[in-house]
Amino acid sequence: MSPRRKKPAPVPLTGDSPTTAPLGNDPILRSVSRAAFALVLLFAFLLLWRGHNAPGGGFIAGLMTVGALILHRMATGTSALHVDPLRLVPWGLALAFLTGLVPYLLGRPFLKSAYGYLTTPLTGEFEWASALLFDFGVYLVVVGGSLAIAYALIDVDPQERVEGDE
C-alpha cells in the first residue's frame, strides 16, 4: 500500500493566510462558500453562453465571477485565480477588438456577428454566434479589472501611515 499524499496547501497572497483572512476561521462560511462558489460560477457561465440571445453576456457574467472569487477569498484567505488579474485585461481587449476587426477586414460592418447552427447528439441543435467571442473578451476585461480593484482594496492596511498623516 502506498502512503497517502497530503494535498499541498494553497499559496496565500501577499501576507494573507487562512488565519488572517477576515472570516477565514468560520467553518460554516468555508463549507457553504464551496457550494456557493461552484453554483455562482455555473450560473455566470450560463449567462455568458446565452448572453448574445438572451439577457446576460460578458459584463454580468464577469461581475458574477468576481463576486464568487471574492467570496472564495473571504472564506479561505487565498485567491482561486492563480494569475495576476490585470493580466486578463489586455487579452480581453484584444479578443473583443479582433472580434470586431475580422468582419471589417472581410468587407462587413465592424462588429458584425456571424451565426449558424450546430447539431450534436449530446446537446441537440443550438445556435453559435461570433458575438460569444466578443462577450468572452468583455468577460475577461471585467474579471481582470474588477478583481484588481477589489484585491487592492482588500490589501489596504488601515493602520498604515502615509506622509501627511498627523
Rank of each mutant, 00 (worst) to 15 (best):
M64E: 10
L23D: 07
F110W: 09
L29V: 11
E125Y: 05
F126E: 07
A150D: 07
V32E: 04
L39C: 06
A114M: 03
L69V: 04
P90W: 01
F43V: 13
P103H: 01
L71N: 09
L98Q: 01
L46S: 13
S146H: 14
L41P: 04
A9M: 02
L106P: 01
E160S: 10
A21V: 07
G24Q: 02
A61W: 10
T123W: 15
A148T: 13
T76Q: 06
T120H: 09
R4I: 00
P158D: 06
V40H: 01
I154T: 08
A68M: 04
F37K: 02
R73C: 10
G100M: 03
L98P: 00
A38F: 08
E125A: 15
T65Y: 04
L105M: 07
L147Q: 04
P85D: 13
R34P: 02
F97R: 02
H82G: 14
F37N: 05
H52M: 10
P121A: 14
G124D: 11
R108H: 07
A94P: 00
G92P: 03
D165V: 06
D26V: 04
K112N: 04
F126I: 12
A148G: 12
L101M: 07
G24F: 03
S130C: 08
A129D: 15
E160L: 11
G62P: 08
K6Q: 10
G77F: 01
L95H: 00
L118A: 13
L111I: 03
H82C: 07
F45C: 07
A150R: 08
A94L: 04
A75E: 05
K7D: 06
G124A: 11
M74Y: 06
G124M: 10
T120A: 09
V143Y: 01
L63V: 12
L41C: 11
P27I: 06
A129G: 14
I154L: 14
P90E: 00
S146R: 13
M74F: 09
R4N: 02
